[in-house]
């Protein structure tokens, strides 16, 4: 076990835990934002640099601070490590500029983007960014392309987090898409206009933190905050069959995987469950999905959120965690 202090809060975690996972165990008040890291996807993380933190004490054995800010999603904790996240001005400044970097080529077309309301980049820039822009250069643009029958790639919005590439690599056979070109003209693309066609391809939509990969069956049907997410399941021979169904009135507009508190998919689902089963009669509906009360999705109707059970100030937590560092 290793003891680590993040923003003044101490926690004991197993060896090999990353700083980000340790911070998430303490809670959202110290957890750094993450755009490219996804705990269910191996080797993800380290690219977007939004989760940079300052390590002011390396470990009990070697108390020297780390010279640079480190990506918390890819740095494992050491016993006695001290980490500053929101308490470090250097980190807050760096994060602010990362948001600026991510936004200089982002179209900011949130009013017509299907992802708006559940977009990680929106949350990130609202919480950590600046209200003003300092660039007036033309943004990079791409044509929209269809990759498969149900998925549309809107490369202009992409922040190159590599999540979809890694998901396709790890949960499906024969990945046909990846990153081509270099630098700011790098793009996600399929190999010579191939379609992404396999039973689990729809998961790239769920892991996309922005609106670059969208569900064509849901395209322009509704703003997400006018739909109500319900947890439902069915017997599926391909996947766990556990989904969120997004209702507008009586109609199921779309199905997605269930996301946890950090916006990460809990279990990957198959394309049949996602795209084809759009009738209530296909499903056993369980209960309203839990939505954070801060989310715009909960704003218009009911709110199901877990109330805080304890008042947390400098408490020492010891929790087992299932997922170890990858």
């Amino acid at each position: 076990m290793a003891k680590v202090t993040i923003d003044g809060i101490e926690i004991e975690v197993p060896e090999g835990t990353t700083i980000l996972q340790a911070a998430r165990l303490i809670g959202p008040e110290v957890a750094p934002p993450a755009m490219c890291y996804h705990s269910k996807v191996k080797t993800s993380g380290g690219y977007c640099r939004t989760c940079l933190v300052e390590v002011s004490k390396g470990s009990e054995k070697d108390p020297r601070p780390m010279p640079k800010l480190v990506p918390s999603c890819r740095t494992t904790v050491m016993d006695g490590m001290e980490v500053s996240n929101f308490t470090s001005k250097k980190v807050v400044d760096a994060r602010k500029s990362i948001v600026e970097f991510l936004l200089i080529n982002h179209p900011l077309d949130c009013p017509i983007c299907d992802q708006a309301g559940e977009c990680h980049l929106q949350d990130l820039s609202y919480e950590n960014g600046s209200a003003k822009t300092r660039t007036d250069f033309e943004r990079r643009t791409f044509n929209k392309i269809d990759i498969g029958n149900n998925i549309q790639l809107h490369m202009t919005r992409c922040i190159l987090c590599y999540r979809c590439v890694k998901v396709a690599e790890q949960i499906t056979d024969g990945r046909v898409h990846g990153v081509i070109n270099r630098g700011d003209h790098a793009e996600i693309s399929t190999y010579v206009a191939q379609a992404i066609d396999n039973d689990f391809s729809g998961n790239v939509i769920d892991v996309c933190p922005v609106g670059a990969l969208t569900d064509k069956t849901f395209r322009f049907k509704s703003r997400v905050w006018f739909t109500k997410p319900m947890q439902a399941h069915r017997d599926c021979d391909k996947c766990s069959g556990k989904v969120n169904l997004w209702y507008k009135g009586e109609e199921v507009l779309r199905g997605t995987g269930r996301k946890d508190q950090w916006g990460e998919i809990e279990e990957f689902i198959c394309n049949t469950c996602r795209f084809d089963k759009k009738k209530t009669s296909d499903w056993v509906v369980e209960k309203p999905a839990s939505i954070s009360h801060q989310s715009v999705i909960s704003a218009n109707h009911y709110e199901v959120f877990t109330k805080p059970t304890e008042f947390k100030i400098n408490i020492v937590k010891t929790l087992p965690i299932e997922e170890k560092t990858n």
């Binding site: 690219y47 977007c48 630098g183």
Partner: peptide, 17 residues
């Protein structure tokens, strides 16, 4: 700008900017 690999955001966007 031409040689940035485009993996991490500060370099990808910053060099172009």
């Amino acid at each position: 700008h031409h040689e940035s690999c485009g993996q991490c955001s500060p370099c990808r966007e910053g060099t172009a900017w």
